[in-house]
C-alpha cells in the first residue's frame, strides 16, 4: 500500500470525525444519542477524537426505556464518570406516567416503540436542533437510503421520498425554526467495521457483548434473556444458556445468540462467519416488512 493511502478504518474514522465537526459548526445545540450499545460507544469515542484536546462540546442523551440490562447502565455511568461527559436521561417511564405514552400489553409487550415519544419530547424540552445517532446503513434496508444529515420536520418526521440530495462531503444543515436534524456519523460502517475498530482502538464495551451464562428462554426462534420486564408463557422454559448479545436494545425485544466468543478476536471471527444479520435477533424489526421504515417516519432513531 502506498504511503499516502489510508486504511478503510482510518478513512471511515476520518469521515465520521468530519461529520461530527460539521454538526458542531452548523448547529447551535446538538446532542449525541447514547444507548450504551457499541455503536453509540464508538460514536462517543469518535467525538472525543474530533475535539481533542478540548472536551466533547455537546451532551449525551440516553432514551431510557427502564428495561435495561443492568450491565449496560453500570457501563454507561462508569464511562460518563471517567470521561467527564454530560448525560441527559429521557425516561420512557416518565412519558407513560405523564400519560403521553401507553404501555403495550401482553407477552410481546415492548417499550421500544414508545422511545419515539420520549425522544421527541426530550429534543423539544432541551431545544436540541440536531440529534446524532449511531445508526448504520447496513443494519436495515430502510436505513440504506438514509442521509448523513437527515432533515426532520416540526413533527420530527422523516420523509424518505423527499430527502435532500447529499453531494460530496458538503452537508446542508439549513432548517426552519422548530425543525431539527438527525445526523449519522457512522452511516458507512458495517458491523464488522465496528468490531474491528473497537479492537484496533481498544475501546471498552459492556460485558454482555461477550459470552456469558444467563437465564434465557426461546421465543419465535429467538433466544431472550430472562429479566423482570418480560413475561414468559407457560410453554417457555427458562434455563441457563451460554450466550452473548450482538446488539443492546430494550431487554424486552433484544435477542441473544448462543456463543462462546469471549474475546474481541473471537467475536470478529464469529461475525465473519455468521449468516444472519445482527438485527435478525430483534423482534421489533420482525413486526412487518416495513417495520423500521414506519418507525423512522414517526421519528424513531
Amino acid at each position: 500500500m502506498g504511503s499516502y493511502n489510508l486504511t478503510h478504518l482510518k478513512e471511515l474514522e476520518s469521515e465520521a470525525i468530519f461529520v461530527i465537526r460539521e454538526v458542531v459548526a452548523q448547529f447551535e445545540n446538538p446532542v449525541l444519542l447514547f444507548s450504551g450499545g457499541k455503536d453509540s460507544i464508538v460514536c462517543y469515542h469518535l467525538a472525543r477524537k474530533a475535539f481533542y484536546p478540548a472536551k466533547v462540546p455537546f451532551p449525551l442523551m440516553h432514551v431510557d426505556t427502564g428495561h435495561n440490562f443492568p450491565e449496560t447502565i453500570q457501563f454507561r455511568d462508569k464511562l460518563i464518570e471517567e470521561t467527564g461527559a454530560r448525560l441527559i436521561v429521557g425516561s420512557v417511564q416518565q412519558s407513560i406516567d405523564e400519560g403521553k405514552s401507553t404501555e403495550e400489553k401482553g407477552v410481546n409487550a415492548s417499550r421500544n416503540k414508545l422511545q419515539t415519544v420520549t425522544l421527541l419530547d426530550a429534543i423539544e424540552a432541551n431545544k436540541f436542533d440536531c440529534a446524532m445517532g449511531g445508526a448504520r446503513r447496513d443494519e436495515e434496508k430502510a436505513r440504506a437510503k438514509e442521509r448523513f444529515f437527515s432533515h426532520r420536520d416540526d413533527f420530527g418526521q422523516w420523509d424518505p421520498k423527499n430527502q435532500r440530495p447529499e453531494l460530496w462531503n458538503t452537508f446542508n444543515g439549513k432548517k426552519n425554526m422548530g425543525e431539527h436534524f438527525r445526523v449519522f456519523p457512522i452511516s458507512n460502517w458495517t458491523e464488522m467495521d465496528i468490531w474491528q475498530y473497537i479492537l484496533a482502538e481498544k475501546i471498552d464495551i459492556p460485558s454482555i457483548y461477550f459470552s456469558h451464562t444467563r437465564d434465557c428462554f426461546v421465543r419465535d426462534g429467538v433466544i431472550m434473556g430472562k429479566t423482570d420486564f418480560v413475561e414468559t408463557k407457560d410453554t417457555e422454559e427458562v434455563q441457563p444458556m451460554v450466550v452473548r448479545f450482538r446488539t443492546i436494545g430494550d431487554a424486552t425485544c433484544t435477542g441473544a445468540v448462543a456463543s462462546t466468543a469471549a474475546t474481541l478476536e473471537e467475536i470478529i471471527e464469529e461475525v465473519a462467519s455468521t449468516r444472519v444479520t445482527e438485527r435478525g435477533g430483534r423482534s421489533d424489526d420482525k413486526r412487518s416488512e416495513a417495520a423500521m421504515e414506519d418507525r423512522k417516519k414517526e421519528g424513531y432513531f
Binding site: K141, A144, K145, P160, T190, A290, E293
Partner: peptide, 24 residues
C-alpha cells in the same frame, strides 16, 4: 428486493433513491 428498501419502492417495483450497499 434486496436493494429496494422503501415500502413504495417494493409496491411499485421501482427504485426511488440512492441506496448504499456494503461488502468486503
Amino acid at each position: 428486493l434486496l436493494t429496494d428498501g422503501l415500502r413504495d419502492e417494493r409496491e411499485q417495483g421501482i427504485t426511488i433513491d440512492v441506496a448504499y450497499r456494503y461488502f468486503a
